[in-house]
Design a protein around this nucleic acid. Structure first.
Lengths: 327, 327
DNA sequence: TGCCCCTCTGTAATCGGTTACGTAGATCCG
DNA sequence: CGGATCTACGTAACCGATTACAGAGGGGCA
């Protein structure tokens, strides 16, 4: 049995489709008896309005598109959680559209959601800003998270630079002088900003070692392996994200280095794992960012005149056992 | 500037909308020159087809609805990750619709997606099976994960009972005799099945203590606090999920119990955290379940004649440091 | 030349809703 | 009692695509 349509309901209630629509959507000009008949007919037929058709004629879908690089890592799950929390509280749904590397996928992802969503949350720190700006639809409200391109959309950015400076200063404060940085991919804007913050916090003539990882745990371990192989002396490691820090942590322990006595270790993000493993880090609180992004987006969807806003989120330094021996 | 429609493209290319549609969708009967003109016009106008309108006339949305209890915990993130991976590989999108407790929310969530998705993945271990069956749309293909109600849909179930038996036997094998179970909520079917497996593995006259938690970390800690307060003697704890096990782990350590010497501890799920904290558990591999669910659903969306299938996934026992001292 | 067939294109119906507009009937008022 | 006003409802256009059907034009063949 196929789903009943509004016309089926109209026929059964012996009224026009207009009256059904009015009755079911609570319009004022409907006689109580008519409304009752319509509701009875709808119930009897198990009528559920076709959301797709509805959004076509209303030009509103009550859905927001979420375009993320991929869904790996706790990082993105947290954003989605935050987005979903706010969206569903406000009666919106989330349409996920993840993108692999490569510009084509971004285009595909963006094309696929047109006419299905009322707005877009985009996070693509690894995509060239100019290219991204060119392919974003101009007509939809959007919120960009940690993504340089703005062009008429609101932005939400984490102060990566400031966070990296803070954590680097912390390492200096506890007396470390040979600090190694495990950076993220060079084409990732978060990675670049964190690297800049790191450099900015160091004294002029500090001796600096920087290795490039790819934000995954194994690449953190690999970086440590390389340092050890090259016999680079170091007493602190600042990894550009927590997952690489965790990889480094494992590798250091296996190499017999004591944490934090021999080597102090810090990450970035404060993924849920970090607390359990007592990792010093910068708390980014992605769920909160997701919540704010959704709130911001829905606000501009519902009030067309809203000005785009730019919000800079200053993350907090969380000192734990990998830099300071805990009580 | 509002988005161009197919009519705008048709006007600019001086052809009919039918030709535009044919040209852009690669139909056979289009003259090469016409196709070229249409593509040029579409590019010039930045035309992107309206997916909503498209799915209305095609009666296919290339989206699958995901109805989950809520998005808390790593557990659900993992499922979504798996779903998304498979779905996007096959050209589908995910529409998230999370549900709070209460039947009304389930109804709302299900109504909201009608006409927007080609199929449904439902996971609602806490909803009364009969009620759920009654409100599920009969017309859509669906896959239920760990959810009793079937009624024409495929199911994917984790062998909770078998897993719980295996882990309980493991605790017995390492010589523990005073095993405490921290159960999940009684209205949750996963929780009930795990509890049954636990009971089934125990010898007839074992002395059993069972406390009820709510699958959250604090409730695991609270359970331990209660046991200690009541001075119940125990040498092993089996928590119905990993998060409660982690809460228990913290509480036990704070109480000065050595793990695993004084108390062996086991969880269920193998969330990513478990490996880091060396928690013995049952690997459920939710991402894999998500992948299979999506694959199964898409198969039945694309071939209407598919028979529903029922798959039972047997999870593996993962022995780690909280039950057996590691090398 | 006449007829058929094939290729290409356009017209208009359709998907399932919403809603502007028009109208029938009741009520009110001078 | 006639006209204005209001309430309740139906007709049909519309949202933006797809596609069945029909028709125009050209080529091949008897």
């Amino acid at each position: 049995m196929t789903q009943a349509t509004i016309r089926d309901v109209a026929r059964r209630a012996a009224v026009s489709v207009a009256s059904v629509s009015r009755a079911l959507n609570g319009a004022a000009n409907v006689h109580p008896d008519t409304r009752a008949r319509v509701i009875a007919a709808a119930d009897a037929l198990g009528y559920v309005p076709h959301a797709g058709a509805r959004s076509l004629s209303l030009a509103r879908s009550h859905a927001i598109g979420v375009v993320l690089p991929d869904l790996h890592g706790e990082f993105f799950s947290e954003i989605i959680r935050g987005l979903d929390r706010e969206a569903s509280a406000r009666g919106y749904h989330l349409l996920l559209s993840n993108i692999q590397d490569g510009r084509d996928h971004v285009i595909q992802a963006l094309r696929a959601v047109r006419g299905r969503v009322d707005g877009l949350v985009v996070m693509a720190p690894h995509v060239d800003p100019a290219a991204l700006a060119a392919m974003l639809p101009g007509s939809l409200p959007k919120v960009m998270i940690n993504t340089p391109a703005s062009k008429g959309g609101s932005t939400l950015r984490v102060d990566n630079r400031g966070g990296a400076e803070a954590i680097t200063r912390h390492l200096l404060d506890i007396g470390r002088r040979h600090i190694v940085h495990i950076a993220g991919p060079a084409n990732n804007s978060d990675a670049r900003e964190r690297y800049e913050g790191f450099k900015a916090a160091l004294p002029q003539r500090a001796d600096v070692h920087v290795l490039e990882g790819d934000f995954t745990e194994p690449s953190g371990a690999a970086a440590i392996a390389e340092l050890l192989a090259r016999k680079v002396p170091f007493d602190a490691v600042f990894a550009a994200n927590d997952m690489m820090a965790l990889g480094a942590l494992q590798a250091l322990r296996e190499a017999g280095r004591r944490i934090p006595e021999d080597v102090a270790l810090a990450g970035f993000d404060d993924v849920p794992l970090a607390r359990y493993l007592s990792l010093t880090t910068i708390r980014v609180h992605m769920a909160d960012i997701g919540t704010r992004a959704a709130a911001r987006l829905i606000a501009s969807v519902e009030a067309k005149d809203e000005e785009p806003t730019d919000e800079l989120i200053v993350p907090a330094l969380i000192v734990r056992g990998t830099t300071v021996r805990e009580p």
